[in-house]
């Protein structure tokens, strides 16, 4: 049986194989997604993001367990950084999700960023598509530990949970642009630590700065390790999707994300073309050498490469 058929029957090995193939930009996986794309869109895609060590994996583990009580099928994509020097990586998110390993209703996949910036890997969206065809009800995407501007997750998910912890900075951090703007729900994890109330309050104040026609991001205090408050967070996650479905917002968000997905794919393909076409001519290294020696400049080089592509 071919991989696509096995995938729609819920075969774990086929799902795993296809995710590897899409990570390597292999046509066999792309064909499967093309053929079965009309079966996707049913899963609620939830992004879990926040600083390193904030408890994203532990929290994901607890959320998945709650959903499993209601017999929902769940997929998890956990992204960790790839070394820019060796291309290697340590993918360690499974450590916090050991109990889920043998649950037949859960599929967990670790991915390295493989040079992609923005907090996700290039193939994350492809992996979401494959899990969606595989037939899960919920997909969690856990980003790498983020700093201030890794906002890719908002383009790949229906609901973004921003996991904060006490003690990372004052209210100036909270009003900065970037990551603080993308949360649909804020979770203050490790709420048994000093300063949790202050962090939550600062978030509330930051959020109150803006007017909301519909959904106003809630702030939930919780402790993932102690499993306290996680059910409130899950309620908020489910309410967020329901709220979007009540008006046009869900449709609009999916349209916006689809647009960005298409543009990303086009961009990748164009970059491939750039590498291919420069290799056929003098090569990118030679062009770069000329620029470094000031015999050319980056803008003229760009124009020359574009001219080659247009030919």
């Amino acid at each position: 049986m071919e991989l696509g058929e096995r995938l729609i029957k819920g075969d774990k090995r086929a799902c795993a194989r296809l995710i590897s193939l899409i990570e390597n930009n292999d046509n066999r996986a792309i064909e499967v997604i093309k053929k079965h794309y009309n079966k996707t869109g049913n899963a609620h895609v939830i992004g879990i993001t926040g600083p390193p060590g904030g408890g994203k994996s532990t929290l994901t583990d607890k959320l998945v367990k709650l959903l499993r009580k209601n017999d929902k099928k769940v997929g998890v994509i956990a992204v960790d950084p790839t070394s820019p020097f060796t291309g290697g990586s340590i993918l360690g998110d499974r450590v916090r999700m050991s109990d889920l390993a043998t649950d037949p209703g859960v599929f967990i996949r670790s991915m390295g960023t493989r040079g992609h910036l923005g907090g996700l890997s290039k193939a994350t969206k492809g992996a979401v598509n494959i899990l969606d065809i595989y037939g899960v009800d919920y997909i969690f995407i856990e980003t790498v530990g983020v700093g201030q501007s890794e906002v890719d997750i908002v383009k790949s998910s229906d609901t973004v949970v921003m996991v904060m912890v006490p003690g990372l900075g004052d209210d100036i951090q909270a009003i900065k642009a970037g990551i603080m703007e993308i949360g649909d729900i804020f979770a203050v994890n490790k709420s048994d630590l000093d300063g949790a109330d202050k962090t939550a309050l600062e978030l509330e104040m930051m959020l109150d700065f803006k007017k909301y026609d519909t959904w106003r991001p809630p702030v939930t205090k919780l402790s993932a390790v102690k499993n306290e408050g996680v059910n409130n967070l899950l309620d908020n996650i489910i309410n967020h999707k329901e709220d979007m479905l009540k008006n046009e917002n869900f449709k609009l968000r999916r349209e916006k994300n689809a647009k960005l997905e298409i543009l990303n794919l086009v961009e990748e393909e164009l970059m491939e073309m750039v590498h291919k076409i420069t290799d056929e001519h003098e090569g990118l290294d030679t062009i770069a050498k000329k620029v470094a020696l000031r015999k050319s400049n980056p803008y003229t080089s760009r124009d020359e490469i574009i001219k080659l592509i247009k030919k």
Binding site: T82, S83, T86, G87, G88, S89, I90, L91, G92, R94, V95, S98, A101, T102, S110, G112
Partner: peptide, 18 residues
């Protein structure tokens, strides 16, 4: 990792099934 591999680390006390 330093040899360029992707290492999935699962932690302590794993059963063969896990």
């Amino acid at each position: 990792r330093d040899a360029g591999m992707e290492v999935i680390y699962t932690g302590l006390r794993q059963t063969p099934e896990q």
